[in-house]
């Protein structure tokens, strides 16, 4: 009995091995003709967009919405894979090492660049290891204070913080986050010495801002929108070049006299380096179309951001100029990680 079964399974195994062999041969042949033809037929199978943060954050939710629409327009499943950790470096290095075939993409935010600016030992280079595809949008940060802090404007904040340096702390979502670097930039340009108090993400930072343990937060708009509307915090300024349409009565930090202070958070999609140009073009068009959809656009605008429909080169430009900008601040302010 047992012997028969064994020989049968042996035979099955032999067939299986031959089949695998044939498949491998086929795959090699296909790889030889890879390139132009492949790019023309792209996409043939599911595309994975790696989000380098844990599921559930604001970035993740934008990525999932974009992925859902891309799936419709590209006609193949578009899967979001969360690979959080290490300030986004785990997910980013995964994509940096992926095949440049357009099936593994990375959802990036300003953190992608700020993290690279403070962290010297990353296993990838934000410029050389990736191919920019498209920027989705960008938005200013907002400067908020606890409602009991006796300042009503950026000017007052600067003078009070200079008069009593001990009284002012600014919160951030962690060392090297956009909130941290904005605060450091503000200190540098305004000549203040507010103390940086890092948290594990924006949630706990918001909590301590509301309780008054920390006084100032250079926050991303969606994090604080509800608090601002309910007047639980004071909104002093927005950080863009122009006033935010969401808060037309609120001045920018620049208007308030801090020359050169301009900070944006942004979102974009990149692929591994050497991604074939036709695939980049095709994805760029598809992403730009998704961004223009009412639901996506409405959402970004509702969160105080603006949509960006640009070329891959414009995203490349954004990444490299932001990198230079933040690297300079990190060097000047001495906040590089050791």
């Amino acid at each position: 009995m047992i012997d028969i079964r064994r020989s049968r399974s042996d035979r099955t195994f032999g067939t299986l091995a031959r089949r695998i062999g044939a498949t491998l041969l086929g795959a090699t042949l296909m790889a030889a003709t890879y390139g132009e033809a492949e790019a023309q037929n792209y996409p043939q199978r599911a595309i994975t967009i790696v989000v380098p943060f844990a599921a559930g954050g604001g970035t993740d939710s934008i990525a999932r919405e974009v992925a859902a629409h891309l799936q419709t327009s590209l006609g193949q499943p578009v899967v979001v894979e969360n690979a959080g950790g290490g300030g986004g470096s785990i997910g980013s290095s995964r994509v940096a090492n992926a095949d440049p075939d357009g099936y593994t993409l990375l959802f990036v935010t300003s953190t992608f660049v700020t993290h690279a600016a403070v962290e010297s030992g990353l296993p990838y280079d934000v410029v050389k290891s990736f191919t920019p595809i498209a920027q989705l949008g960008r938005g200013p940060l907002i400067v908020v204070t606890n409602k009991d802090v006796p300042v009503g404007s950026i000017g007052e904040l600067v003078s009070k913080a200079k008069a009593d340096p001990e009284a002012f702390n600014y919160a951030s979502a962690g060392p090297g986050s956009i909130n941290h670097l904005s605060g450091a930039l503000f200190n540098q340009l305004a000549g203040t010495t507010m103390t940086h108090v890092p948290y594990k993400g924006s949630g706990p930072a918001t909590f301590d801002l509301l309780s008054g343990a920390v006084q100032v937060f250079f926050a991303t708009t969606p994090t604080m929108l509800g608090q601002v509307k309910a007047k639980e915090v004071k909104l002093l300024a927005t950080t863009g070049a122009e006033r935010s349409p969401l808060f037309p009565d609120t001045p920018t930090v620049k208007e308030a006299g801090i020359e050169g202070f301009e900070v944006y958070t942004w979102w974009g999609i990149v692929g591994p380096s050497n991604l074939p140009r036709p695939i980049v073009e095709q994805l760029n068009k598809a992403i730009n179309d998704v961004v223009a959809l009412d639901s996506v656009r409405g959402r970004l605008i509702g969160e105080g951001a603006e949509i960006v429909r640009g070329t891959p080169d414009q995203l490349a430009q954004t990444i490299s100029s932001e990198l230079t900008h933040w690297r300079k601040l990190v060097a000047d302010a001495g906040i590089a990680k050791k």
Binding site: G56, G203, T206, F207, L210, P222, G226, K229, R299, G302
Partner: peptide, 30 residues
């Protein structure tokens, strides 16, 4: 904390806030 202040106390709450935002509801004190 989530329903009254709009602050997530764990990742699950953060996801729910994400779901609300997509629905056009801004979680917060109001």
């Amino acid at each position: 904390p989530m329903l009254t202040l709009g602050i997530p106390s764990n990742p699950v709450m953060a996801l729910m806030i994400g779901a609300l935002i997509i629905q056009g509801i801004q979680p917060g004190p109001g």
